[in-house]
Design a protein around this nucleic acid. Structure first.
Lengths: 335, 335
DNA sequence: TTTATTTACGTAAACGTTTACGTAAACATT
DNA sequence: AATGTTTACGTAAACGTTTACGTAAATAAA
């Protein structure tokens, strides 16, 4: 708010506001001479166009929203990083909203965004959300890209990783290491993401003639301590020799539980987790991870959103699938 | 963009836009009866006021900007978490900008924000920034709160941690553990933050009659590999028995370097680092950390900003200092 | 009953842009 | 010389709110 607006600028230049506006946007209607005078004066006076006025007139906000469960999470913060990088190249602004896995918060945010505040939305659905009716409505009003945590039956652009293959291969890896009783820590069960992950697990079991046992499946809940207790209970009662954690949040509790129960990783139980932890190689033991390309997902999601905003993207319901990487480390070392 | 604006709403209700506007804001000038009709219809039609129009008229954006070096960083993502939580309680929106430690990017962002896009700015200065002249200018135009990474001589509100005490106590801890040659990995040397940290270190050495040696100080640079090589070189040539890392980014390279050189932590060299890693307890060995209250810093910074916006805060240059915690773990275990 | 006050609304201007439309001057075409 | 076209700008309306000001009707005070 240097207090300088286009009118004052025009006054200073003995021009009309219209001419100044056109000159600033490099319109062909304005002589080169005038343009240069305008540019010079704009720079001199540190003129910045008022975004509210611009947005109001143009009905564009040059802003996108990112709605995620948590910022303080390796995956999501890396995704934001990618999104912000792309947005910056386009001089777009990025609004951040955290749902804390709460469906109502999520809905409230979205409702508030349906008023021209943003030109598009990038969203990773909260765990709790199982009803996609609202989303089916809003995608008619504004471009929405779903990333990582997506719905099954919605006609929208989605960016995911190869969730099915990831858990399939992870399970195979454990089987190769000799595991016979592989537990599965299930997250995101409401979402397509979570379903594909467990499907990969069961398919791998099937393909290797290992019976699926319901008792080996643990569904995560919202309470961290409860999760920890459940994992411990699972380790005690079922004595699995392998664990696949479908979400990063459950990996560390596994480590703590094993420590607590004097179980050796990987001798007694091998562990693989979805994770974007930078410290995975330095854990004790180092953690075998399914690492998602979070940064690239953010970049891709933003890139596609901008293509849509540019009207250069026409597949309204494509799913772009990026590959995760299974990084084998100490927690699944075979003897 | 449900396409419904205040005029259509007014038309539907047989009222003027002015009355509707006032009813929505619960003005005393409007009868209870009318208000309720308006509220009901607004809800029914899913009316959301257009923010550009509101902002333009009111000269408020209900938006704040957060300018930080990186999102994908434990400290900053936790700080954003705190900021977002406070902003939400006020129905404010949060814009995120990453400088990637680049001073010019930082300046460009700030310039763009001086046009009413945001009502206030929360910023953690980039490493490279040493000139605070621009900042002295902008704080006249818009409320700016500096957090964690702050300038020395600027008349603004700052939120920091007890940087001096933190490194002082960390150094003491190493001395207590018998360390005689304590290396210091220096970051943020341009900023008050970095200066206070190294001051704490040298003071502790002084108070314990240990000579300060320039060769034991390593300044970080922008290149990760270069940092790693420098740390290795330091370990080889100086053989320190303790290391204090003033930034989280250098902690893991230390671990790798020690591994590489077959140095045992903590037997050969003890390590303490500023860090907000959740996995610090699970590293091999677990890492002794100076943990900053990142979440609380974000909350405090946002809270004070809102007080300023509410004109309920008048100390224009207070520094609020939160306490970091020295968490002693395996990397500094004494025999 | 007359006048003052309060209540509940409407009118219109303003916020700072952008752009459709208009136009005078310069230039080109016949 | 009369007409058409281009160039380079200005005028004014519009985007969707909010609010100062105005006012008719209802109520209170005299």
């Amino acid at each position: 708010m240097s207090g300088i607006n286009i009118k004052k600028l025009a006054l200073e230049l003995n021009l009309s506001a219209a001419t100044v506006s056109r000159a600033l946007r490099d319109s062909y209607e304005i002589s080169t001479e005038t343009k240069q005078k305008v540019w010079a004066m704009a720079k001199k006076l540190n003129y910045e166009p008022n975004p509210s006025a611009s947005n109001l007139r143009s009905q564009k906000s040059k802003t996108i929203a990112v709605i995620i469960p948590e910022v303080a999470n390796n995956f999501f913060s890396q995704a934001i990083n990618g999104i912000e990088e792309i947005a910056r190249t386009r001089d777009y602004h990025v609004l951040i909203y955290q749902t804390h896995e709460n469906s109502e918060t999520e809905i409230a945010f979205i409702q508030r965004l349906l008023s021209g505040r943003v030109d598009g939305i990038l969203i990773s659905i909260s765990k709790e959300t199982d009803d996609n009716q609202l989303f089916k409505e809003i995608i008619k009003d504004i471009p929405v890209i779903f990333f990582d945590r997506v719905f099954k039956d919605i006609d929208a652009v989605k960016i995911t990783t190869d969730d099915y293959e990831s858990t399939y291969n992870a399970t195979l890896h454990l089987i190769d290491c000799g595991c016979k009783k592989i537990a599965y820590l299930m997250g995101l069960s409401n979402l397509e993401t979570g379903k594909k992950r467990i499907d990969g697990y069961t398919a791998a079991l099937n393909d290797n003639d290992i019976a699926y046992k319901n008792e080996l499946i643990m569904a995560d809940c919202t309470d961290d301590d409860e999760n920890y207790q459940q994992i411990k209970k699972l380790l005690i009662t079922e004595k699995p020799d392998g664990i696949i954690s479908s979400i990063e949040e459950l990996a560390l509790p596994c480590y703590y539980a094993c420590k607590d129960l004097n179980l050796n990783i990987p001798a007694d139980v091998k562990i693989i987790s979805f994770s974007n932890l930078k410290t995975a190689p330095l854990l004790n033991p180092s953690l075998t991870t399914i690492t998602q390309p979070a940064f690239e997902m953010g970049k891709e999601a933003a890139t596609i959103l901008f293509k849509i905003l540019d009207k250069k993207y026409f597949e309204s319901n494509e799913t772009l699938i990026l590959k995760s990487t299974l990084i084998k480390r100490g927690s699944t070392r075979c003897e």
